[in-house]
């Protein structure tokens, strides 16, 4: 085996190790790579005749770079933690936007996403029913009620007006409030 080929095998191994450890702090990554580079150099120095097979054997004993990276992450930071933060993706953001703007589509996406619990999905679907389209539909019926209450005594008219005003206010805030709630549930994941 030529010296360049040996150097190439070692470089490839160290490069794979570096790629596997990109999520680690530069300090610990550099320390581990440096130690392993020294280890390889020292072990190679001890080989009486270096061949492809002996060098491969050396690298094989060191193990899969993925295993070394996993050990570096330790039990406190398993690789899955990277995946959990990524569970909050385009689907969830789209679901939240469409839940206010285009309710049926938003609600379907809400149920498609695996991130929220069933309870949160139910709340998100029913409070308020139909998002802004639903709220506007309900509010469009209010003028019938005000028209009917005008026929009665003045205090009925005033009370009905106040109640409808409160309902409208709540109904206009509710969709935004629900989006904020669902978004905070996402961040809690």
């Amino acid at each position: 085996m030529t010296a360049t080929h040996a150097a190439q095998l070692v470089d490839e191994y160290l490069q794979r190790l570096e790629r596997e450890m990109t999520d680690l702090s530069p300090d610990s990554r550099n320390e581990i790579i440096d130690e392993i580079r020294r280890h390889i150099a020292e072990e190679r120095g001890g080989l009486t005749d270096e061949s492809d097979a002996t060098l491969m054997n050396l690298l094989e004993r060191l193990g899969d770079p993925a295993d070394i990276a996993a050990e570096a992450r330790g039990s406190k930071k398993p690789r899955t933690s990277v995946a959990t933060t990524r569970r909050f993706g385009t689907l969830e953001v789209l679901a939240l936007i469409l839940l206010v703007a285009a309710w049926p589509v938003g609600a379907i996406l809400l149920w498609v996403s695996k991130t929220w619990t069933t309870r949160e999905k139910l709340l998100g679907t029913l409070l308020p029913p139909g998002g802004y389209p639903g709220v506007l539909l309900i509010m469009s019926t209010f003028h019938w009620i005000t028209a009917a209450s005008e026929a009665g005594p003045a205090w009925v008219d005033v009370t009905v007006g106040a109640v409808l005003f409160t309902i409208s206010l709540v109904a206009l805030i509710a969709p935004v409030g629900m989006i904020v709630y669902l978004a905070t549930r996402l961040r809690a994941r």
């Binding site: 392993i36 060191l62 899969d64 070394i68 050990e71 570096a72 330790g74």
Partner: peptide, 16 residues
């Protein structure tokens, strides 16, 4: 030990 290289991150972690 199976993958000998894992001793280095182990030592590094024990140091931190």
């Amino acid at each position: 030990v199976v993958s000998e290289g894992t001793i280095y991150p182990l030592l590094s972690r024990m140091r931190s």
